[in-house]
Design a protein around this nucleic acid. Sequence first.
DNA 1: GCAGTGATCATA
DNA 2: ATGATCACTGCC
Length: 176
Amino acid sequence: MTRAHVLPPAFFARPAEEVALDLLGKTLIRRRGRRLEAFGITETEAYVGPEDLACHAARGRTQRTEVMFGPAGRFYVYLIYGMYWMLNVVTGDVGHPAAVLIRGAGAIAGPGRLTRALEITSAFNGKPASARTGLWIADVGESPPADTILRTARIGVDYAGPIWAAKEYRFVLKTP
DNA sequence: GCAGTGATCATA
DNA sequence: ATGATCACTGCC
């Protein structure tokens, strides 16, 4: 079933903005033991590259941001406020650091709650989004209609200054 | 409204 | 070694 529809690295090897939009309605799948849990992705944010002052990579290539400089389709997971893990997928070409933050899936709203519910930690950092990893994204075939998608500025990025904070790089699936 | 929490990074 | 910062959440 879902295995045949695993999103390949090529899906992620595009501009973060496109990937963020296209991830809405895709299915985040987590394997825990024998069990597979599936969650429809409802909210994403794009961090588009080193020029994006809200993107961690705008501060340069460091140990933390290293994974964003690598191949698309790998997870970038980091800790925020000492408590919450943020789940991202690396996008774009090698050498161009960008990623998409997954902020909501299934009935879970909020990026910190999502990782807590799915037990996602730094153990996934740098791992490919694949069945082997135990965490991946699948295409169920139905793309959400344009009028069900809300586009806004990103959350919590005022530090990036007025230009970049105002960019409408957040995508939300309206719940019916 | 704001405290909690600790890795990360710049500065030294 | 030290201090500021932080792509959040939950409780006041």
